[in-house]
Amino acid sequence: MTLSARDVSWGTSGRMIVGGVTLEAAPGKILGLIGPNGSGKSSLLRLLCRLRKVSSGVVELDGRDIGQVSRRELARRLAFVEQQATTEIQLCVCDVVRLGRTPHRSALASWSAADEQAVDAALARVGMSERHDQLWHTLSGGERQRVHIARALAQTPSELILDEPTNHLDIQHQLSILTLVRRLGVTCIVALHDLNLAALFCDEIALLHEGRLVASGTPETVLTEETIRRVFGVAVRIGATASGRRHIEYLVDPDCYGEAAP
């Protein structure tokens, strides 16, 4: 067991955003979090990494209430990659990645060879070593996302949480980022919009709708024609790729889309 949620709920302004969600990330596997816009994916991720406090239920790390884990200890164990972190400060790639070493250093500690080695190793793992001294603002969207993942890896986490890491990227960079994540070998929870990407890269999937977990399990058990139609309101045909993974073909169905559909 690594990271899990037990009957977790959270809301704001009298409105329930996440309601009674229970899920568990298997060690070394990728758990995909999917659902329509507004289903509570991003809010749940922030509850899992304690950026928000649960209203009820408990988030556990190796069976321990995450609320009882110190911020420093948690940051050494768990890393979070946001959708679109940005900065107006003129930073080099290495400066961004060095931020990941903060949990491992005391306030007065000098930068060490071990710290620099961790930064170099993180950049190498995401294929960005040659960009070490390049200015952040000169990077493409896909390169920036790789650097954010490198910053997270510099924390040397055993759990990695990513909030829609492929958002606004072209298909080449989407595939590149998710291939990279799959090769990392750490426990990952990743929110995704694209159902085919979720089917292709995730070991298990948790489907949220209106803040509640409506299905969880392998892509084969969660991504069914009936479930997708019911939750997303779209008609699909389910097939298989050459590797045996689920493939979703979206259909034009007047019953779903109305008379405006072609």
Results as ranks from 00 to 15, higher is better:
T187A: 02
S176M: 08
V59Y: 00
Q155P: 06
S129A: 12
A75H: 03
I171S: 13
V97E: 04
L139R: 05
V186N: 02
R71E: 09
P165R: 01
A75R: 01
R146V: 03
V58Q: 14
A122W: 11
S129E: 14
I161T: 01
E60F: 04
L91S: 12
L91K: 12
C94F: 07
E88L: 14
L135R: 15
V186Q: 03
L180P: 02
D133V: 12
D120F: 00
P103L: 03
T156F: 00
T102M: 04
S106H: 09
R144P: 06
R151P: 05
S70C: 01
R77Y: 00
V186I: 12
A109N: 13
E73W: 01
V69L: 09
I177E: 06
A107F: 11
L169T: 11
L139Q: 08
G185N: 14
Q68I: 03
E143T: 04
V97A: 10
H148D: 09
Q117T: 11
D65A: 03
A150D: 12
Q68F: 03
D115G: 08
L160T: 02
D120W: 06
V181W: 09
T86I: 04
C94P: 00
T86F: 11
I189K: 00
A85P: 09
T187Q: 10
L169A: 07
R76V: 00
M128L: 13
H168G: 07
W136M: 07
P157C: 14
A122Y: 09
V96R: 05
G67M: 03
Q145F: 05
L175R: 12
T156A: 10
A150R: 09
E82G: 10
E82F: 13
A118W: 10
D170T: 12
T166R: 03
L74F: 04
Q145D: 11
G57T: 03
D170N: 13
L184N: 14
A191R: 01
N167C: 06
G67A: 04
H132W: 15
I149Y: 07
L91Y: 15
R64L: 05
S112T: 15
D163T: 05
S110T: 13
G141A: 04
A113Y: 11
G63N: 11
C188Y: 03
R64N: 08
A191K: 01
A118Q: 12
D120T: 11
Q90V: 15
I177S: 04
G141F: 09
D62Y: 00
R64G: 00
S176V: 04
H132N: 13
R146L: 02
R98D: 04
A124W: 11
Q90T: 14
L178E: 03
C188A: 15
Q117L: 06
T156Q: 13
G127T: 13
V186A: 04
S158F: 13
C94W: 10
Q83D: 12
L192W: 02
A124M: 13
V93K: 05
T138F: 09
A118R: 10
R146A: 05
V181E: 08
G67Y: 00
V96S: 10
D133K: 15
S158V: 07
V96W: 03
T187N: 08
D65Q: 06
G57C: 05
D115Q: 12
V119N: 02
L99C: 12
A191V: 02
E159F: 00
V59T: 02
A113C: 08
A154V: 12
G185D: 15
V186K: 04
W111M: 13
V69P: 01
